[in-house]
């Protein structure tokens, strides 16, 4: 409690992910997945598009391409409000960007990501209450 009982050796998920290096095979697999999903975007209906954007965003995130991941995950939520893996990943990425902006003293970026986190809080409220 109060952070005192926290195991020192444990790293937060984001840090753990950043430390893990992807194998060449996994990298190729993710890049192929992204390419295939981008092609799918041309053909699918709105609901599927949200899912496809989410898959693209998660794949970019695993590849460490934060900006691309954010763009795809935002598009997914703009198409359909959900609070699945894509939502959680986006919250984590926004928080990383917010922390970087705070450390750099970049007020504009800091406000931008705090506002984006506000947007995610509203989506969470809406989804839980069933607001479309």
């Amino acid at each position: 409690m109060f952070g005192l009982g926290k195991k020192k050796g444990k790293l937060p998920n984001a840090a753990k992910e950043a430390q893990m290096e992807l194998s060449a095979e996994r990298t190729v697999q993710l890049e192929t997945e992204i390419t295939q999903n981008k092609e799918l975007l041309q053909q699918h209906t709105s609901k599927n598009q949200a899912l496809v954007y989410e898959k693209i965003g998660l794949a970019y995130s695993e590849l460490g391409k934060v900006e691309e991941a954010i763009t795809a995950l935002e598009k997914s939520l703009e198409q359909e409000k959900t609070t699945g893996n894509g939502y959680r990943k986006l919250l984590s990425l926004y928080n990383q960007k917010r922390a970087m902006a705070a450390k750099a003293g970049d007020d504009l970026e800091l406000q931008k990501y705090l506002e984006k986190i506000d947007w995610l809080m509203q989506i969470s409220k809406d989804v839980t209450r069933g607001v479309k």
Binding site: T83, G84, Y87, R88, L91, N95, R98, L114, I117, M121, Q122, S124, K125, V127, T128
Partner: peptide, 11 residues
Amino acid sequence: PALDCPVLFPY
């Protein structure tokens, strides 16, 4: 950042 309670709803 300590955020409002909807931060936990998705989990």
